[in-house]
């Protein structure tokens, strides 16, 4: 039975750690801006065409779909869950498109089927996680494998090529320069996601769920419904990214997008979204996507192999969870020793 003394004690303990949230976030994003500028400067120094429309076009082309998938992933991680099946859903969508195309479908209805497939795949994740209360990491590791397997079953070893590229241009002219279509779409989507996250009651609910799920539920927020919708959204966006990816590569096979979930999670975490949920902004994720694009472009320009790049991306992922936790971890370890004493009463 918790009585007055216990509560007073806890108050004291909590007050010690108060008031850091927003400040550290702002700092994180300024850090990202500096990092981005640094990448661009390095790139320009080593490669004089770095900051030209062409280069920007191609880096945008590379990162577009990954960055798109990072947006719903941001929402999901803010609620304290994760979706590791994103790249497989992208692959499933690409395979479906390829299969339908090989079977003589018109491209537009095929795309609609792809979107439906994505929504169903996301809904399956969502039902398992919200209805059955299963841990999202385990479920989506399972469906990562399941959806990739389905992609392989649908398309077999075939590679679908010969998509009618003429129906969709890859670039969008802006003034004199051009920007990759998928990157342009990403920017538009990012604006929508940012508005939803930061200005709507839906966005507010996401933070509340991630920070204190029980309070959110006690305050009339439909926690499970919201999570379910996020997974469906994730499925839809991944399916859409799969369609774009297929166009960009002008081909689809069963390994399309294999392993991209790592890039997606890396972008989200680098963007300052807390792996514990409840913290993060879309602007941070957009900056992280730009950094990733600039960094890979620069590294490719100076002939750093893809393997070394993946080491660097992995390192960034690791750093982006280690750095914000360095202080938290320290506080937590100290609190742990305190709890060891108090905890006997629990």
């Amino acid at each position: 039975m918790e009585d007055t003394e216990t509560v007073l004690e806890k108050d004291a303990a909590i007050d010690l750690g108060g008031g850091r949230g927003l400040v550290s976030l702002v700092r994180w994003e300024s850090g990202l801006v500096i990092l981005l500028i640094a990448c661009i400067i390095c790139g320009t120094l080593s490669f004089k065409y770095f900051f030209t429309p062409q280069t920007i076009f191609f880096s945008g082309l590379d990162i577009g779909e990954i960055a798109m998938m990072a947006l719903p992933m941001t929402f999901i991680i803010i609620t304290g869950e994760i979706d590791l099946s994103v790249a497989s859903m992208l692959g499933l969508s690409a395979s479906t498109l390829g299969y339908l195309f090989l079977h003589g479908w018109n491209i537009w209805p095929a795309m609609i089927v792809c979107m439906v497939v994505g929504a169903v795949a996301g809904a399956f994740n969502g039902i398992l996680i919200t209805r059955f209360g299963l841990p999202s990491i385990a479920v989506t590791i399972g469906t990562l494998s399941l959806y990739r397997g389905l992609a392989s079953i649908i398309l077999g070893t075939n590679t679908a090529v010969g998509f009618p590229l003429s129906t969709l241009k890859l670039s969008l002219p802006i003034g004199k320069s051009e920007i990759a279509y998928d990157f342009a779409i990403f920017i538009v989507m990012a604006i929508v996601f940012a508005v939803v996250l930061h200005l709507t009651s839906f966005g507010r609910s996401l933070y509340a769920i991630g920070l204190q799920k029980e309070t959110a539920f006690f305050s009339g927020i439909r926690v499970n419904q919201i999570k379910f919708r996020l997974y469906v959204l994730s499925g839809l966006v991944c399916a859409f990214a799969g369609i774009l990816y297929t166009y960009q590569e002008a081909s689809a096979n069963n390994v399309t997008g294999l392993g991209l979930e790592l890039n997606v999670v890396a972008i989200v975490l680098l963007g300052g979204v807390s792996i514990f949920g409840g913290r993060g902004t879309i602007i941070g994720v957009v900056l992280a996507a730009c950094i990733m694009a600039a960094l890979t472009t620069w590294l490719t320009d100076i002939d750093v192999s893809g393997e070394v790049q993946s080491i660097i991306i992995g390192g960034l992922l690791l750093l982006s969870v280690l750095v914000p936790n360095a202080r938290d971890g320290f506080v937590r370890i100290r609190a742990l020793f305190k709890r060891r004493k108090v905890g006997a009463s629990l």
Partner: peptide
């Protein structure tokens, strides 16, 4: 010792070790 979720840490290291291997 850094008390970071193993999911995120091992995801990052997955990349790093695979990259080392490939190099």
């Amino acid at each position: 010792y850094a008390r970071v979720p193993s999911l995120a840490v091992t995801l990052g290291l997955l990349y790093i070790i695979r990259g080392l291997d490939a190099v």
